[in-house]
Amino acid sequence: MSEIDSKVPNKPPKTKSDFSRRGFLKGVGISGGVLSTGVLETEAEAEPTAKVDGPGAVPITLNINGKMHKLEVEPRVTLCDALRNRLEITAAKRVCDRGTCGACTVIINGKAVYSCTTLAIDAQGKRIETLEGFSTPAHPHALTKAFLDHDAEQCGYCTPGFVVAAKAFLDHNPNPTEADLKTGLGGNLCRCGTYMGIRKAVMQAAKEMKSAKVAKGTAHA
């Protein structure tokens, strides 16, 4: 299944076609600092005291939906895999596993992030929100209800990623035009073809979230 991933940490890929950004990231195991292939080397040099973890499992604490979770993971484990395999928090789905499709979207410190290209050790000390944290069948979020109303879901496998991405989008863009949302949700893919419903659902939820905010503001005043 994974004959292209490099197995030894820091071992350079054999050929260009063997190169896997994920394998590279997973093999490095540096905690702290933003990991991206472009800045990795300079950051490592600039921080000679950076703690090097791994390759074995290390204890970490993740703040997920306001609750602290202690677990042990190897530094190469992505946040997506930590959520799904270790903590059984499974709304975020692993689909492309390479930061393309958005099915694994979570919110970290208020920003939508692909959890399949975020290392679990790197998510420490940050506020991680998954769909379970803001919407449940008993207390569905306005977006969840709007997705139901506009049938913005079929098989439903991309749906949690879309709902989370839409929440992050609306948190930053409470008054979107439809053109805004087409750009704002461009980082998620659906295979069944539910985009028509999603457009309507997100616009409806935007309205409802806004009026709920106004009502809340009035109540406080």
């Binding site: 709304a91 975020a92 379970e132 449940t136 569905p140 879901e153 439903g156 949690p160 709902v163």
Partner: peptide
């Protein structure tokens, strides 16, 4: 629909 759009729906990959 609510199960799916709240992430509560469990697929066998979950």
């Amino acid at each position: 629909g609510i199960q799916k759009a709240s992430g509560a729906a469990k697929y066998n990959s979950d």
